Every structure is written in structure tokens, then in C-alpha cells.
Amino acid sequence: MLLSRRVRLVNRLPVLLTRPARGNGEFAEALRGALGAVEIIENPLLEIVPLEPVELPGPEDGVIFTSARAVEVFSNWQEGAGRRAWCVGNRTAEAAREAGFAAVAGDGAAAHLPALLGREDTVPPLWHLRGVHQRRDVAAELQALGYDCRSMIIYDQRALPLAAQIRTRLEAGEAMVAPLFSPRTAGLLAAEVKNMGANLRVVALSSAVADKWPAPSAVAERPDAAAMLEAVRREVG
């Protein structure tokens, strides 16, 4: 029995996690619960650095969060205190509720936030609390639809390199599964392994993430953690 368990572990591919530290830790815990014995390598390619906002929302204003990290950073300056928050997906909404917001969850796609707001009878002035790097200008899109929405940067997503020991393993051709949750992380990892001949089996959160990876990849059925777990499970073996 012991030999059988060891063989199964040897035959499973390691998983390379490249999210910011907290996101890596959360997904690593979920992976261990779902997969059991598997090597998980945590090497963040982004570091979340809080930036003090120029202004803060008033007590009657609503907020928009497009990542759980934005909720975490914003909590450094204001409490939720029951304020309305419209969130890109369930994980972000959970983080917002834990921080004291009355949160509404979208389906995981920022492009669908206008439809989420459209279900409301009234919408207060809005603040999109975000990082320096963003795929789409949520505030501008909402302004074009007639909403009073401001954009406020509250953190930076600073790039980090692959660790030397991980580069060595990849340069040797070792196969790894790499779940990628954002287009920027996909682009950073692609730049890190360029001309390396890395044998990475990439699992992308969405087609937008897959588009930034210069090779074929698996795409999760939905842009959420549960679908990513299932997609990674298939690749790990």
C-alpha cells in the first residue's frame, strides 16, 4: 500500500502557483483539499503594494471591487460599515462581506458589472477601487452608461521574478501544471520562460488569460476557483 501511494505521487505533476502571496496560499490550501498528495510550488510573480488613495468614498457612496485584493487593501483605510459593494464574483463578494460590506456578487466577469447594476432600482455614486494595472476601464464604461462612477487606485501590482531553483527545474524540461488567473500574470510568466523550452501545462481562468499565453492551454469552464480546481485536477493526473 505504501509503495502504491508513492507511485501515485511520483506520477503526479507538480503545480506552480504564481498569484500574489495571499491568493497563492488560498488556492494551495484548496488544491491540497481537492488533490491530496501533490507538490505545490508557490512563486508569486506579482506583489500587492498598498498605495494611499487621494480621496475616499463618502458614507453614502457605493463601491466596486474587481478583486479580493482590492477589498483587503481598502480595509486599511475604511470599514465596510454596511456600505453597498458590487463585486466581480463570489470570492470577491465573500471578502467584501467579511470586511463589513453589503456585497452583491457578479458571475466573475467585469464586463457583466453593468448588467448587475442594472438590476438595482437606484444606484448611489460609485467608486471603482482598483490596482494600477487593469484590463478594462470599468469606471469609464459605467460613466458611458450614465452612472456616476469614479476610479481610484489603491494598490500596485509589482512584478516579481521566478526563483532561481524554479528556473533550473523548468530549464531541465520538468513538466509542471501552471494555473493562471490573470492576463498580466500570464504575460509575466510567458516572458520569464521565453526561449527556455519550459514544459508547462497552463490552465487559464478565462479566454482573456489564455490569449496572453503563447501556446495552447486548458481553459476553466467558468471563471471561478471551483472550475480552476477541476481543470487543474485533470492536468495533474
Rank of each mutant, 00 (worst) to 15 (best):
residue 103 A to T: 04
residue 101 F to G: 01
residue 105 A to F: 04
residue 127 W to Y: 15
residue 103 A to R: 01
residue 85 A to Y: 07
residue 94 E to L: 13
residue 118 G to T: 08
residue 113 L to C: 08
residue 112 H to A: 14
residue 103 A to G: 00
residue 119 R to H: 14
residue 125 P to T: 12
residue 139 A to G: 03
residue 136 R to Y: 05
residue 141 E to D: 15
residue 126 L to I: 10
residue 132 V to G: 09
residue 83 R to Q: 12
residue 135 R to E: 09
residue 87 C to A: 08
residue 106 G to S: 06
residue 110 A to T: 00
residue 97 R to H: 10
residue 121 D to S: 13
residue 131 G to A: 15
residue 98 E to H: 10
residue 131 G to H: 08
residue 123 V to P: 03
residue 115 A to Q: 15
residue 136 R to T: 01
residue 139 A to L: 01
residue 122 T to V: 13
residue 93 A to W: 04
residue 84 R to A: 15
residue 108 G to D: 04
residue 91 R to M: 07
residue 94 E to W: 06
residue 115 A to I: 06
residue 84 R to W: 14
residue 141 E to C: 02
residue 117 L to Q: 09
residue 99 A to I: 04
residue 133 H to G: 00
residue 104 V to M: 07
residue 124 P to K: 08
residue 134 Q to N: 01
residue 98 E to P: 03
residue 117 L to S: 11
residue 127 W to I: 01
residue 83 R to G: 09
residue 120 E to S: 14
residue 101 F to C: 05
residue 88 V to Y: 03
residue 82 G to H: 13
residue 110 A to L: 02
residue 129 L to S: 02
residue 122 T to F: 04
residue 141 E to N: 11
residue 84 R to L: 15
residue 115 A to L: 15
residue 112 H to Y: 05
residue 131 G to N: 14
residue 127 W to E: 06
residue 128 H to N: 10
residue 129 L to Y: 10
residue 140 A to E: 13
residue 129 L to E: 12
residue 120 E to R: 14
residue 128 H to P: 08
residue 91 R to K: 07
residue 100 G to C: 08
residue 123 V to F: 09
residue 118 G to Y: 08
residue 114 P to D: 12
residue 103 A to Q: 02
residue 132 V to S: 15
residue 127 W to P: 04
residue 129 L to M: 12
residue 128 H to G: 11
residue 115 A to R: 15
residue 97 R to K: 13
residue 114 P to T: 11
residue 103 A to C: 07
residue 129 L to P: 07
residue 90 N to Q: 11
residue 98 E to V: 14
residue 137 D to L: 02
residue 139 A to C: 03
residue 99 A to S: 09
residue 111 A to L: 05
residue 111 A to M: 00
residue 132 V to E: 12
residue 100 G to N: 06
residue 100 G to I: 06
residue 94 E to H: 07
residue 141 E to P: 01
residue 105 A to Q: 04
residue 96 A to N: 02
residue 131 G to Y: 13
residue 107 D to L: 06
residue 136 R to L: 12
residue 84 R to C: 10
residue 97 R to L: 10
residue 105 A to P: 04
residue 122 T to M: 05
residue 106 G to D: 11
residue 122 T to Y: 06
residue 90 N to T: 02
residue 82 G to T: 11
residue 133 H to T: 06
residue 85 A to I: 14
residue 138 V to E: 02
residue 130 R to A: 07
residue 87 C to Y: 09
residue 138 V to D: 02
residue 111 A to T: 06
residue 111 A to I: 00
residue 101 F to T: 00
residue 110 A to Q: 05
residue 93 A to Q: 06
residue 102 A to N: 14
residue 130 R to D: 01
residue 128 H to A: 13
residue 115 A to M: 12
residue 106 G to W: 03
residue 121 D to Q: 13
residue 82 G to M: 13
residue 100 G to A: 09
residue 99 A to W: 01
residue 135 R to L: 02
residue 98 E to L: 11
residue 84 R to V: 14
residue 108 G to L: 02
residue 91 R to Y: 03
residue 116 L to D: 12
residue 88 V to H: 03
residue 105 A to V: 06
residue 109 A to D: 10
residue 107 D to K: 08
residue 83 R to Y: 12
residue 96 A to P: 12
residue 97 R to M: 15
residue 104 V to E: 13
residue 108 G to K: 02
residue 115 A to C: 05
residue 95 A to N: 00
residue 123 V to G: 05
